[in-house]
């Protein structure tokens, strides 16, 4: 275990107001995390992998209807419904606020997926295959998952670990913004802000303080670590949120 000089707690703010629905985060995540190629048939079978996905929803009644976008990923709940139901501890909570999936332990009961109120978990129905040309494009830091197991967003834990090790080698604390998940890095509109909330200087605090903040399905008491900022709507003065 890497001994950490102070406790960290990673959170992400998703500013829905800025999201344009460009899907750059989806592609970045796909590339970073060795996610199998989602073919058309995967989508038709409803077995596609999208650790982060842009969901489109409609707001208002026709003709006053607006398309809205919201990036959707594992919410890394502090009180995660998926964790207690796993019989083999394949998913558990680490001390940095991350909801971690241990692929080796997973037996594929899919109980966690059923109990996830956000449907943020993905099951490997098939052995993943990549075209020959992409074999060398796989990220060596990330495990390639086999069939029969669950996977989901990790907040790019490999980047967190690498950043921590770099900091440790250099004998310093990790700096805010030194590393961030692939999706946040790729986002052109700065929708996704990632940071350590235990670090008082962290940029994320600026966003966490906004009164537009909300969590998805707060009534379940899941205490998510992904915080949304609702859409500003100057015309309707309506905020996205509790649909």
């Amino acid at each position: 275990m890497v001994s950490t000089p102070r406790e960290r707690k990673w959170q992400m703010v998703v500013d829905a107001d800025r999201c344009t629905g460009c899907q750059a985060c989806v592609i970045a995540c796909q590339a970073e995390n060795n996610i199998p190629i989602n073919s058309e048939s995967h989508f038709q079978q409803k077995r596609a992998f999208t650790w982060i996905r842009i969901e489109r929803y409609w707001e208002g009644e026709f003709p006053e209807v607006k398309a809205r976008f919201i990036p959707f990923l594992c919410q890394h709940c502090d009180n995660a419904p998926c964790e207690p139901v796993c019989p083999v501890f394949a998913t558990y909570h680490n001390n940095e606020g991350l909801n971690v999936q241990v692929y080796n332990r997973c037996v594929g009961t899919r109980f966690c997926q059923n109990n996830c109120p956000y449907h943020a978990r993905y099951f490997n129905f098939w052995e993943p295959v990549w075209p020959e040309t992409l074999r060398n494009a796989l990220n060596p830091d990330v495990t390639v998952r086999g069939r029969g197991i669950m996977e989901k967003c990790t907040f790019c834990v490999q980047r967190i670990r690498r950043g921590e090790q770099d900091a440790k080698r250099e004998g310093r604390d990790v700096r805010d913004g030194e590393f961030q998940p692939a999706c946040a890095q790729a986002c052109p509109a700065n929708v996704l802000i990632f940071g350590d909330v235990r670090d008082p200087q962290s940029r994320i605090h600026e966003f966490l303080a906004k009164d537009r903040r909300f969590r998805l399905r707060e009534e379940l008491g899941t205490e998510t670590n992904v915080i949304y900022l609702s859409k500003l709507d100057l015309e309707a003065k309506e905020v996205a949120g509790h649909a």
């Binding site: 079978q45 409803k46 077995r47 594929g108 899919r110 997926q113 059923n114 449907h119 993905y122 099951f123 490997n124 129905f125 098939w126 052995e127 069939r147 029969g148």
Partner: peptide, 11 residues
């Protein structure tokens, strides 16, 4: 072959 042979899918 894997559980893909079943009719299960998300959700």
């Amino acid at each position: 072959k894997g559980f893909g042979l079943s009719g299960a899918h998300r959700p």
